[in-house]
Simulated scan of single mutants.
Amino acid sequence: MKTQLQMLGVLALLGVLVLPCRGQVAAPASLPTCLIQYVSSQTLTNTSSRRLTLYKADNTYVEINAYSYGNSMFAGPWISSALHQGTYTYTVDALDPTHATIAYDGGGAKDQLYFVIPTSGRQTTPVTTPGDDREFTLYPEQNTAGGANVSNRCELAAGGTAITGFVVQGDGPRWVLLRAAGSTLAHLGVTSATVAGPSFTLYNSQQAVAGVSAVWSADPNLVAGYETIFALVGAFPFSSGSDEGVLLVALDPGVYTAVFKGQSAGQILCEAYILPF
C-alpha cells in the first residue's frame, strides 16, 4: 500500500511538471493588436494550409488570406478560400499558462496556441501524428501610425524598367506591401497614358528573388484582404478589377530592391509600405 501511494505521488508530481511543458513561455494575458500567420503541413496526406489574420484591439478580426494545398487523395495547386471576419474571444488555459485559445464568432471555430517563444509556437500539443506540423507566428503591432512608405512615379518606355529600393530595420521579420499602380492613376489626376499590366520582382541584397507580384484582382477570394491591407497602411484603393500588381510578404531585416515593368509604355507608380507589424 505504501509503495502504491509513493507511485501515485510520483505520477502526480510528473503531471504537475509535464503539463506546463507543452510550451516554454506563458501566453500573453490578452491578445495584442497583431497579425498571426498560421501554417499547417501534413506530409502523410500531402496537405498543407496557410492563412494570415489581423486581430484588432476591439475584439474583431479580419482574414487577409487563406490557402490550402492538396487533400488526402491527391496533391493539387494552392487554392484560396473565402475570407472571414467577425468577432473573437481570447482565453488563456488556467491549467496550462502556455496554452491559449482564440474562438471565433461565438466559439464555432477555434485556434489553439501553444507558445514556445513569446511570438510563435505550435497549434497542437507536442504529441502529434508523425508528419503533422502546425505552427503559428504572432506579429505584434510595433507602431500605430500606419506603414512607412516609399514611392516613385516614373515614365516607362516600352520594355523599360524602374527600380525602387528600401530597407527593413529591426531584429525580426516585418510584413511589407509592394504595389505597382497603373490604370488607377488615371482616376487620381494623371492625364498621360499609364502602363498596362504593371508588375515587379523583389530581390534581397544577394540578388535572390524574394517575391513576385500577382494581379491583385485576379482571385476574388483575396480582394477583400488586399483592401484591408491597403486601408491599414493608408494606401489609396485600386480601381475595381484593375490589372495592377501587389505582393504582401514577411521580410527579414535587410536591403531590398524591386524591379518594376509594364506591358506597355506609360506612367507607373512604384510603392513599398512597411506595415506596423
Rank of each mutant, 00 (worst) to 15 (best):
M1H: 12
M1K: 14
L5Q: 12
L17T: 04
V18F: 07
Q24R: 15
A27E: 01
P32T: 08
I36F: 01
Y38F: 12
Q42W: 14
T43K: 13
L52A: 03
L52R: 01
D58E: 09
E63L: 05
N65M: 15
N71P: 04
F74Y: 12
I79Q: 13
S81I: 05
A82Q: 10
Y88M: 05
T89K: 14
Y90M: 08
T91E: 13
P97E: 07
Y104N: 00
Y104L: 11
G107T: 03
K110G: 07
K110R: 15
L113G: 05
S120D: 06
Q123N: 15
T124I: 07
T125N: 14
V127T: 09
T128L: 03
G131V: 02
G131C: 13
R134C: 08
Q142C: 11
G146I: 10
G147D: 02
V150T: 11
L156T: 02
L156M: 10
A158N: 09
A158R: 10
V167R: 09
V167A: 02
G172W: 03
R174P: 08
L178W: 03
R179Y: 03
A180P: 00
L185I: 03
L188Y: 13
L188M: 13
A196C: 13
L202S: 01
L202I: 00
L202W: 00
L202D: 03
N204F: 10
S205R: 11
Q206Y: 10
G211I: 05
S213H: 02
A218D: 11
V223A: 06
T228W: 02
V233R: 02
F238G: 05
S239K: 11
D243R: 08
E244R: 05
V246W: 05
P253W: 10
V259R: 15
V259M: 11
F260E: 00
Q263F: 14
G266P: 00
I268N: 06
E271A: 08
P276W: 13
F277Q: 07
